[in-house]
Amino acid sequence: MILQLSEDQRNKIALLARCILPGAHGQPSAAEIDLEYAGIDRALKSRPELAGNFCTILDRFDSDAEDFLAHLSETDFNLLMTLICAAYLMDSSVKKALGYSGQEALTPNRGGFGAEELVLEMMQQPKRYRDI
């Protein structure tokens, strides 16, 4: 069962997200993606157990995002950041801007593991363990 967020809560998410994730460093602003709707719904679908506390935090937020973030408890700050950052970072346009394609199945090079010559040199070193 996914908690349905109210319009007021979605507006608060948008305000907070724009403070947390402005456009910078080649990344889109949270305002440029559908974070407060599809993004946050996707994050909460993954972690429905966080929805209750998330809404409680939102309900305490008024309008000054900087001040609100600075004074949240560590637990609440982490929960808020987890959901808003996840909503942002799972967005396809954000991933594309990051050059991040997700955790992919690759075909590793089976020709060698790397630094083989240095391994051979290490093999020639004296044994370095102790024993009795």
């Binding site: 403070c19 402005p22 910078a24 990344q27 600075a70 970072l89 991933k95």
Partner: peptide, 20 residues
């Protein structure tokens, strides 16, 4: 990227440009 964003560094909370 989410792990990077949330990793507890020895610094103040970061958001905004610092988070990017």
């Amino acid at each position: 990227p989410l792990g990077a964003a949330l990793y507890p560094m020895d610094e103040a909370r970061s958001w905004g440009n610092a988070l990017h």
